[in-house]
Design a protein around this nucleic acid. Structure first.
Length: 272
DNA sequence: ATGGTCGACTCTCGA
């Protein structure tokens, strides 16, 4: 079973790309982030044509997450337990469409999989930053509790984490430091590492160590042709799931050409 | 062979 995660930056704008990518790569399960649509605008027919079941969680032009699977899609859950809502300036907090889960595969091969779009944070002093950190903290607590309840759990936390955990995960760490940019700060990295301390493993990095290995390149300033990217999309696997990984890679080629998302897909092969 | 934002949607914001 091959699983993948991909921030598509609008599913409608990327529909042709997603369809041809699914045909080409033969993945069984795709976790999607930034669908940027509500259900009524979702390209359901794309997945029907391809014989994938799909579950979507999106209610505006912002965020939006989905899971498509051709190996079963059960027990869909929208938002994780205790997921913080974002409230600003005294307005009512809004629960954003940033997390959806499903059980994919069957029998001993079944995987509980989350498609996650972690809040960006926007700025080190922005009110979105404590929201991001709290969001991650609660998710980690939930995932750790799930794992404690069943140490053999096959759990995949996949998506756009909006964190570069190591200095080599950005093209110029000094630039990020000098400009006080997000994604590399100590609190963000601590929030990410807490998942690793809880037993979850990045299953791509061991197979594709850096530097210079990225999953995202900004559209501006020729970042892609200049190889100036960030590694911010991850598949974190529980120990039992990590044990069954046979291969993992970043499909950098998908970032090429006109009409690409600014993120590349990340693919994990769990074997036959 | 990859090229100087892009996407949703309003007159701008989020990434």
């Amino acid at each position: 079973m091959k699983i993948a995660t991909w921030n598509v930056n609008s599913l409608r704008a990327r529909a042709d790309r997603v369809e041809s990518w699914l045909e080409r790569t033969d993945v069984d399960v795709l976790a999607i982030q930034e669908t940027k649509c509500k259900d009524e605008n979702f390209p359901w027919e794309l997945f029907e044509r391809m014989d994938y079941e799909v579950a979507h969680f999106g209610f505006s032009q912002w965020n939006g997450v989905a899971i498509a699977s051709r190996v079963g899609l059960a027990d869909v859950e929208r938002t994780f337990s205790g997921q913080p809502a974002f409230g600003k300036g005294g307005l009512d907090p809004v629960q954003e469409a940033r997390a959806i889960a499903a059980t994919v595969g069957t029998g001993a091969d079944a995987v509980r999989l989350w498609s996650l779009y972690v809040p960006n944070g926007r700025g080190l002093q922005d009110e979105h930053m404590p929201y991001k950190l709290q969001w991650l903290h609660v998710l980690k607590e939930q995932a750790a509790a799930d794992l404690a309840a069943d140490p053999n759990l096959r759990l995949a936390l996949t998506g756009d984490w909006n964190i570069a955990p190591q200095d080599e995960d950005v093209w110029d760490i000094q630039l990020f430091r000098d400009q006080g940019l997000t994604h590399v700060s100590a609190p963000e990295r601590a929030a990410f590492h807490a998942f690793e301390e809880a037993g979850f493993q990045d299953v791509v990095r061991p197979r594709h160590p850096g530097p210079g290995v990225y999953t995202y390149w900004d559209y501006t300033q020729l970042r892609f042709p200049k190889k100036e990217g960030m590694r911010i999309d991850f598949v974190l696997a529980s120990p039992a799931l990590a044990d069954s990984v046979t291969d993992a890679w970043i499909d950098r080629d998908e970032r090429k050409g006109k009409g690409a998302s600014d993120h590349a897909p990340v693919v994990v092969d769990l074997g036959p």
